[in-house]
């Protein structure tokens, strides 16, 4: 029989999680609040679009994805009080006015002939930006102190990746002409510029900064 009182390390040899993380509680709450705002705007828009798209498969996918993003919004909403924000609505805001402009431009297409624009906005612009920001957050936050956020982001990212793929495949199957490629890329460029101005779904620093600042020698 094994000796029951034999000491063991609290972190098993294969558990390489480290304590420090990039964000303190306040910054985490700010980001999570932005995420909730983005997810809410997205599920509302997808819901609104359902009635406006004639393509049956797209209509049904939008209905399904609408719920996915609502569920993400719910997860983030539940996380906020755990991050000392007792009024989750206070932080469920956009990081800046530029992201509001982006969201308005993304949800603007309504006519039944604009399915390409609708899908481009959601699946070629917003979802990739969300995946980027969530991945940055997931990889940068403390794997010990902020594990609840990481767990949420893991679930959310799994949905995002699946939905992104589905949306991209719908687009690929709808785009059939050079002119439609032009439409898709033009709309994407327009929205990307707005997103660039916003700095990402959580504002500037949504995915950190990859450049090294070198001070010039005098």
């Amino acid at each position: 029989m094994a000796e029951v009182k034999r000491p063991r390390e609290p972190f098993a040899p294969w558990d390489r999680r480290v304590l420090p993380g990039l964000f303190d509680v306040e910054e985490t709450a700010r980001r999570v609040g932005n995420y909730k705002w983005v997810e809410t705007k997205l599920f509302e828009t997808l819901g609104g679009w359902i009635a406006t798209v004639p393509e049956l498969d797209v209509k049904l996918r939008l209905g399904t994805h609408c719920y996915h993003h609502a569920w993400h919004a719910e997860l983030f909403d539940k996380r906020l009080p755990e991050l000392r924000e007792m009024n989750p609505e206070r932080l469920a805001i956009p990081p800046n006015e530029n992201l509001v402009d982006f969201m308005e431009a993304m949800s603007e297409p309504e006519a039944p002939g604009l399915t390409i624009e609708k899908l481009v906005g959601a699946y070629r612009v917003l979802l990739p930006h969300k995946i980027a920001a969530y991945t940055y957050h997931r990889n940068g936050t403390s794997e010990v102190t902020d594990m609840p956020t990481i767990r949420m982001l893991d679930f959310v990212l799994q949905d995002e990746m699946n939905d992104w793929r589905e949306g991209e495949m719908l687009l690929k199957s709808i785009i059939e002409t050079d002119e439609e490629i032009e439409r898709a890329t033009a709309h994407q460029a327009r929205l990307e510029k707005l997103m660039l101005a916003a700095g990402g779904i959580a504002g500037k620093g949504s995915i950190g900064n990859a450049y090294i600042d070198i001070t010039e020698e005098k």
Binding site: T40, F43, E44, G47, I50, L56, K59, L60, R61, G63, T64, C66, Y67, H68, H69, A70, W71, A73, E74, D77, E89
Partner: peptide, 20 residues
């Protein structure tokens, strides 16, 4: 309320399955 909207989004998913 936010929670009512979540219910409506859930209903979207359900109705999409019902269509299928």
């Amino acid at each position: 309320p936010f929670a009512m909207k979540l219910d409506m989004a859930r209903q979207c998913w359900d109705e999409a399955r019902h269509c299928e």
